[in-house]
Design a protein around this nucleic acid. Sequence first.
DNA 1: CGGACAGTTCGGCGGACGCCGTACGAAGGC
DNA 2: GCCTTCGTACGGCGTCCGCCGAACTGTCCG
Lengths: 261, 261
Amino acid sequence: MTATAQIPLAALASLLADGTRARFCLALLDGRAWTAGELARHAGVAASTASEHLSLLVQGGLLAEERQGRHRYLRLAGPRVAQLLEDLAAHADLAVSAPPPPATLRAAASARAMTEARTCYDHLAGRLGVAVADALTARGLLLQDTGFALSDAGLEWFATRLEVRLTPSGRRPLARGCLDWTERRHHLAGVAGAVLCATALERGWVRRIGSGRALRVTGPGAQALQELLGIENSTGSGTADSAEGPTEDGPAVRSRGDGIF
Amino acid sequence: MTATAQIPLAALASLLADGTRARFCLALLDGRAWTAGELARHAGVAASTASEHLSLLVQGGLLAEERQGRHRYLRLAGPRVAQLLEDLAAHADLAVSAPPPPATLRAAASARAMTEARTCYDHLAGRLGVAVADALTARGLLLQDTGFALSDAGLEWFATRLEVRLTPSGRRPLARGCLDWTERRHHLAGVAGAVLCATALERGWVRRIGSGRALRVTGPGAQALQELLGIENSTGSGTADSAEGPTEDGPAVRSRGDGIF
DNA sequence: CGGACAGTTCGGCGGACGCCGTACGAAGGC
DNA sequence: GCCTTCGTACGGCGTCCGCCGAACTGTCCG
């Protein structure tokens, strides 16, 4: 019996203390399910190595698996895990103040698209995510000064303007602040953040770029954001496909929008 | 160059992945400063071993050190670190559903006192902490349904009833929910939680039991809680000294109160 | 039924790391 | 001044663990 096993905190940290396992978890922060092989290639290790790591992560309660035929799909075990990883990553990245500059043009374009708009597990992040949180706050729908919670008007807004139900599921908070690692400010997470992101994807307000977690705001999306929250088409820079994703990257489909968020 | 060093998340997790270092951090969650020797004895390792570990933790930004004469005092680097540790520990402890029963009578008594009232870094926890959060919520001073934030009335209450200023310091939120690992519900953390705890200690409403983090509510304290928040003297069980602390444990000073929280 | 592919299990190798004891420097009490 | 005490630097030892390749199981497809 090793010493770390008796300290739950150390046992949990051990799971994330390995570079390969950490890469897996960070990749899965896009909120989707990857196959074991995809994760192995993503991290640059042999399939056998990945298999063992994934079993550990599943056993440790960080990942959930779903087997379909000869595939083993893996995703984060739930919002709690996603939040934990976000917090940890945010803290770690703050310590290393200077992230290495992207090595290739393509990576740079991908990074730019990510800073504009992306998913953060199951909610919106990047400039877009922060802009939404700010707009909600400016309109008195979200309280950020004294904590982080929806106001009564905010509840009303979700029900009547957005026309969605916020169902309090389990112990997950309705609204939660999530530190955005590019903007270094909070965006909206929790049930409300998830519902908002899902709604935006369903109604075609945002679309995934390529196979990654970067997002692009569509024309109707820009209009909806303007009408619902008064968010103006801001600071637009080009959009690009993402660098990495659960599917093999096909030929680059690089599009360039004009100032679309 | 090891592989984990290139992944900040993994580098941070590595610091906590060792049982001894984890023990150090958990001990320091009492919010006070320990000397290197005290921590070494607490974890049961040689002084030289502890010294190396502590240097790593300081270098990693988790701990702050302060040298006084021949002593090296160590404390958590700040509220952010404390929160991270709390979250991590809460998650880890949930995974291991059944904590081992206390081995000695004295440890059992200490555990009982801890569940009643204790500090959690710099705020109140245990039954007392949750009771305070609940009372604030019941009176409309704290919003817990739609997130976690003080209401306007809550701000007012701190200013006029408690007669303290809540100064928004840095990026620390005014109010934050912290998962209580004994009650499995939220208690009040953030600036408000810290101010409330400090006030309670200053005005003698609560007192530290022995040298640990367990607290005892005093007579005037019970009265103040009743007047300010309508909290009745609840579920009192005996109080006892704590098992571990930064100072060498002297002779046990076991006191037994009658139903004092 | 056989071939291709996804994933797992196993053995073995090599590096990383946590531990200690010892020796040393520095601060404080007598 | 000497001696005790707290903390640090170093060398060595043992273990743990992450990696791979090879062999095997199971699934899908033709």
